[in-house]
């Protein structure tokens, strides 16, 4: 019985440690901000654990120690008060030193975080919506401004400045592997600087309850070398690919005539809605519906056919489409690479 229990504990422990790695973990830092925060939390946890153990020993000791047998129980020990005072004052002094030390550590960590983006060359505006992320790459040249959704490409090894705001309720932007969290507040812009040391994919999640689909409001940061990032940016700036094949052509026509066009934008076509994700290059993204589904023809069809069973309460309505119409629209969207 004991062996089974200990084995269960060991495997549970191993499993929970597994959860610390991966593409979304504050304990597996992949950037300077996250490293600073991870170091801070480990140091705080370690020091507080030591203090806790010492306090527990100090509490337990008098319970287990046998008191010295005194010859005269009523005799007053003239040095006792002084000794007790010294012990208490020492404990107070050590506590004060530890607290001031931790405050200073936290202060210097904050200074490091604030310095990360001081020379950021790239500014991205991230706008929170119920329940997706609008991503706009700012540029001095209007023709270089790029709007996309839910997937944020950044050059690795370079600091990036994120301007965070929201259009409806308060959301919170959190990429645990890269940075701490910061709120997106309607009518206010918060600034968060991030940097990914190495190329990779890092998952993020809305960290402020924002409505029924708060849990399905994910995002992906894709860090890649500068050259690859520039290629991606140039590709995304192109207008949408022309549909090839009769089915996709019919899909484009349907997209412009049916409710899709009321909310979504597809660059290079009359569809210019700005209240829902930009679909100009939707097929180049890895996920659908803010990280809810992986991108595939089947998932795309499922999402369009009945978004309310996949993400109940989301603002994408159920649209009346027959099978042929659905296939045509999916064929069209699938070609928007």
């Amino acid at each position: 019985m004991k062996r089974i229990l200990s084995m269960a504990f060991a495997s549970a422990g191993a499993l929970s440690l597994q959860g610390c790695a991966g593409l979304q973990s504050a304990l597996d830092p992949k950037g300077p901000a996250a490293s600073e925060l991870a170091w801070l939390i480990w140091f705080f946890t370690g020091l507080c654990a030591v203090v806790w153990v010492l306090v527990m020993i100090a509490l337990a000791a008098p319970l287990t120690m046998r008191s010295r047998a005194q010859a005269e129980p009523l005799a007053i020990d003239p040095g006792a008060d002084g000794r007790k005072l010294r012990v208490v004052m020492t404990a107070v002094g050590v506590t004060a030193v530890i607290l001031v030390g931790l405050t200073l550590l936290s202060f210097f960590a904050n200074r490091t975080l604030a310095a990360i983006g001081s020379d950021a060359a790239l500014t991205i505006r991230v706008t929170g919506h119920q329940w997706w992320w609008e991503v706009r790459y700012e540029n001095a040249m209007p023709s270089r401004i790029l709007t996309t959704a839910n997937e944020i490409h950044i050059p690795s090894g370079e600091p990036v400045r994120l301007l965070l705001t929201s259009t409806d309720v308060i959301h919170s932007f959190w990429i645990p592997s890269l940075s701490g969290k910061l709120d997106l507040i309607p009518g206010h812009t918060n600034v968060l600087d991030i940097k990914a040391d190495k190329p990779g994919v890092y998952r993020g999640q809305c960290a402020e309850f924002c409505g029924v689909q708060h849990a399905n409001m994910g995002t992906f940061i894709i860090a890649e070398p500068r050259a690859k990032f520039d290629t991606w940016w140039n590709d995304q700036l192109r207008p949408a690919a022309d549909p090839t094949g009769d089915e996709a052509k019919a899909g484009e026509d349907l997209f412009q005539r049916r409710p899709c066009v009321m909310c979504h934008r597809i660059g290079g076509t009359p569809a210019g809605g700005t209240v829902a994700p930009d679909l100009t290059h939707i097929a180049s993204r890895q996920t659908l519906a803010a990280g809810t589904l992986t991108m595939s023809r089947g998932n795309l069809a499922a999402w369009i056919a009945d978004p309310q069973s996949i993400k109940p309460g989301s603002h994408m309505p159920v649209v009346e489409l027959n099978g042929d119409e659905l296939n045509a629209i999916v064929a069209y969207l699938e070609g928007l690479k």
């Binding site: 005539r257 049916r258 409710p259 066009v261 009321m262 309505p317 159920v318 649209v319 009346e320």
Partner: peptide, 8 residues
């Protein structure tokens, strides 16, 4: 007619 679903 075709631009907004009936419930909306």
């Amino acid at each position: 007619r075709e631009k907004i679903p009936d419930d909306q």
